Simulated scan of single mutants.
Amino acid sequence: MTLEWCCPMNMPATPSLAPSGHLTRRSFGALLLATSAAACAPQVPESAPVAVAPDWLPEYAPLRDAGYDLPAIPLQFTQGINRRMEGIYTGEAPPGSIDVDPYAKFLYHVKLDGTATRYPVGVGRQGRTLSGLATIQDKRAWPGWTPTANMLRTEPEVYGGFRNGVPGGLRSPLGARALYIHRNGRDTYYRVHGTNDLPSIGNSGSAGCIRLFNQDIIHLFNNVDLPMTINIRSEVESLRVDPENYNRGVELPPTIISADELLNSEAVASDRAPDLSQLASNF
């Protein structure tokens, strides 16, 4: 079966990056670079301002949310297939669910009509990823974060300074939104969440959670109805369903930010809490 993907629905593609029409499975990541010159174009006066193309795709433009101005995602992080796309779903998860491939570094929101929105994700380093079926039981905007006991025990040099937690807002490692994964009625402490660690998207580098660009987690959050089944593919399933993208990306070391740097009293004192009455709708 042909798997087709296209740019986000109702969004103009950036001509220099996204091909028109659909992308076939065999052509994921191919870029259509078109240039043209008008030999008889009139001369532009030296004083006229020169239009500069934005350094981001339309779906990753700057965004106002909860009183914060979220920056755009630069083009260098959304090259090829490492961007949000819409297309025909050929995986094995049922309609109305989420399907995550931690080996290909994609999350699929599977629709009732047989299509899906595919988001690039960052996933856990080897041996740190949840697998199998679970349930998205809760979702929160601008959530706070506290490292788990296991994080504190296994990587105290990374998480020890945050044992008292980080409040929701621009400093929270969970970013703009989080979906909370439960299994058998209990919190697994794994999340699908936003991140400011842009190089981690498309790679393995987290402690096990599934990361998205903040613009993408807001888009997903606005389209998720609770409760929702989530499937996290096994290695066998990933090879069976999407062998072409198996083991996409690289494994990264943890990004270490000291508690003094993130939570110094002067910076925290100037923080504004998120205004949850002003959340962005789909864009």
Rank of each mutant, 00 (worst) to 15 (best):
N223V: 03
L198C: 08
V250G: 00
L276W: 05
D197Q: 11
N196P: 11
N282P: 15
A207Y: 06
S238H: 09
R272M: 05
R248M: 11
S258C: 02
M228L: 07
N203D: 14
L239E: 15
D275P: 01
I218L: 14
N222K: 10
I256H: 05
D242Y: 13
V241Q: 11
E261P: 00
P254D: 09
I230Q: 09
D197A: 12
E244T: 15
N196M: 15
V250T: 10
S277L: 13
T229H: 06
I232R: 03
N264E: 02
E237I: 12
D271K: 10
D216H: 05
A269C: 03
I230D: 02
S270D: 08
L212I: 11
N247D: 14
N264S: 02
Q215V: 06
L252E: 01
F213M: 13
A207Q: 04
N264G: 01
R248T: 13
E235F: 00
I210F: 09
V241N: 15
L226W: 06
V224Q: 06
P253A: 10
N222A: 13
S270K: 15
A267R: 13
N264I: 01
P253W: 02
P199T: 04
Q278A: 15
E235K: 08
G202A: 07
I210E: 05
P254N: 07
P274G: 10
N264Q: 01
I232F: 12
I201A: 01
T195L: 08
N222W: 06
D275C: 00
S234Y: 05
R233D: 11
N245G: 09
N222S: 11
P253L: 04
S200E: 02
N214M: 08
A273D: 04
S200Q: 09
C209D: 03
N222R: 12
L239S: 12
S265A: 15
S238Y: 14
S234E: 03
S265I: 14
V250N: 00
A207E: 13
V250I: 10
Q215P: 08
S204M: 12
R240I: 03
D275L: 05
L212E: 03
M228R: 07
D216P: 02
N214P: 01
D216T: 07
L263W: 03
N247I: 06
I210N: 02
R211Q: 06
G249N: 05
N222G: 07
A259L: 06
G208T: 10
I256C: 01
D225R: 09
F213K: 11
N222H: 08
S204Q: 11
